[in-house]
Amino acid sequence: MGIVLCSIALVGCQVLGDSRRSAMGTLQIQANGEDFVRQGFTSKDGWGIDFSHLYVHLEDVTAYQAEPSFSSDSDVPMQVVSEVTLPAETVDLVAGDENSPSVAVGQVAVPAGQYNALSWKMTKAAEAPMKGQAMVLMGQAQKQGQTIDFMLKVDRELAYTCGEFVGDERKGVVLAGKTAELEATFHFDHLFGVRDLPEDDELNRSALGFEPLAALAKGKKLEVDWTTLKTQLSPEHFQALDAAFSDLGHVGEGHCRSDVVTS
């Protein structure tokens, strides 16, 4: 009789263990530079911009279950129920295509639930291809027969803290045994502006555009780092550049809070 009881107890424990494991799912974190990066676009000042690579080094990429939901526009600190952090990773935002517009940052097993907040840091990489830089933008800009091969090296380190993903689909809802996605989105239209929008559109009024950068080119080549940009751009243009990078990080269409990383 004792053997029977023990067997039943063991079966019960096994079932409970299985149920706990089945309450896990997978969360994939992705990075997305949107069509601006993958397909190119025309800046607010008429420069056709095509990127060959756009490297960004991501660190402390953390997904949260926050309750209540976190508002990046509020001073109220995030109330974290659970969180999971991925290892640092360098991604090339140009690598996405029409079928898979986002590039993978990593994935991790997580307890099922709604991951309604995401944060990450953009920090200086320790290894090639962008050693010492947090972001490197490489490509070609063209306007009225003029062509400039550009490389913008950014060692400005920023931390973005965001609420829930806002887009066509709902992201971050992990069901038991299923995989869900979250996305760190980068809005480069905030940096260069967009020709398709009116000049007085708020985005275009605040964007730097490409013309101030083109003015720093030597012949057909522009290779500059953050320090050079700070010293050679006008204060107004550098302020626009700095503000654009602070506003670069999004979760889909949802904006994020940004802070300068101080190590």
Binding site: V11, G12, V15, D18, S19, R20, S22, A23, E67, V81, P111, A112, G113, Q114, V173, V174, L175, A176
Partner: peptide, 17 residues
């Protein structure tokens, strides 16, 4: 919270066992 954690954690077979 809407209870995703538990409501999807145990299927009917497991619950029966």
């Amino acid at each position: 919270d809407s209870g995703l954690h538990e409501s999807h954690a145990v299927n009917p077979v497991q619950r029966g066992l």
